[in-house]
Design a protein around this nucleic acid. Sequence first.
DNA 1: GTAATTGCAAAAGATTTGCCCCATT
DNA 2: AATGGGGCAAATCTTTTGCAATTAC
Lengths: 135, 135
Amino acid sequence: MKKTRNTRQRGVILDILQETREHPTAEKIYQDARRVIPNISLGTVYRNLNFLQDQGLVREIRPCDGGSTRFDGVLDSHAHFHCTRCGALLDISLPQGFEQLQLNKMDGISMISSIDLHIIGECSNCSEEGSGSTH
Amino acid sequence: MKKTRNTRQRGVILDILQETREHPTAEKIYQDARRVIPNISLGTVYRNLNFLQDQGLVREIRPCDGGSTRFDGVLDSHAHFHCTRCGALLDISLPQGFEQLQLNKMDGISMISSIDLHIIGECSNCSEEGSGSTH
DNA sequence: GTAATTGCAAAAGATTTGCCCCATT
DNA sequence: AATGGGGCAAATCTTTTGCAATTAC
């Protein structure tokens, strides 16, 4: 297999993802990265995100309610909560009993590599504000 | 609120979605619909998919592994299995005990409207075929 | 008759890719 | 020096939208 190089761009992108729990989009990562490497290009960001995903260092989350792909650099197992009002995408702990679910041998499944749990609803912030605000 | 009309296009699209468990993409629905209404347009398909979603008659599934949005017209609660080899997206039953999970009051969540469970792995078909095939 | 809906084509986004140059090893 | 990776811009793909014509009610 071919050798990979440690470029500044790649390092910065990975750092950004590992230091936030905001699940940024590629565009947001691009903007953050430009504060460090002003002439980094969006194409490079995408190429590295794909690369890091292939390496298993990062994973992508596709918001259930449309919008662009977001990325997650925190690999502890956790679920995601999507707020339909403000669009927030939050890490949440796996519900009690989740690990014990009978997951194997279901239907036509022969091997499970990962399980994604997405909870869609309203976050406390939005609910506290009554029915008006959109963020 | 404004009145809605029962157009042939809308009916055909809904039928297609309710009669399959294949979770077609908009493009696939468009192709199927053209066999019935040869000059239906892709724009109409998208407009109706969004409309049907707003009505709660259909929901969209965003494949975790990229690719375009797929649609589901079967509303019984079920989970989805994504095969990383052949790309199949299958309905599966919710695992035992799933309904009893402690889901409320977690972290900053104040209201839950739906829960999506996606299982990623390999389907039996692909595994039986050994390690070669891509479908 | 009226307004919701369609078809078509253009526009808008998001992501990928080709090409040539630069920088890591 | 060799070649993986970057920058830039064009290309691709998916989805949305404006508008005039059509059709359900």
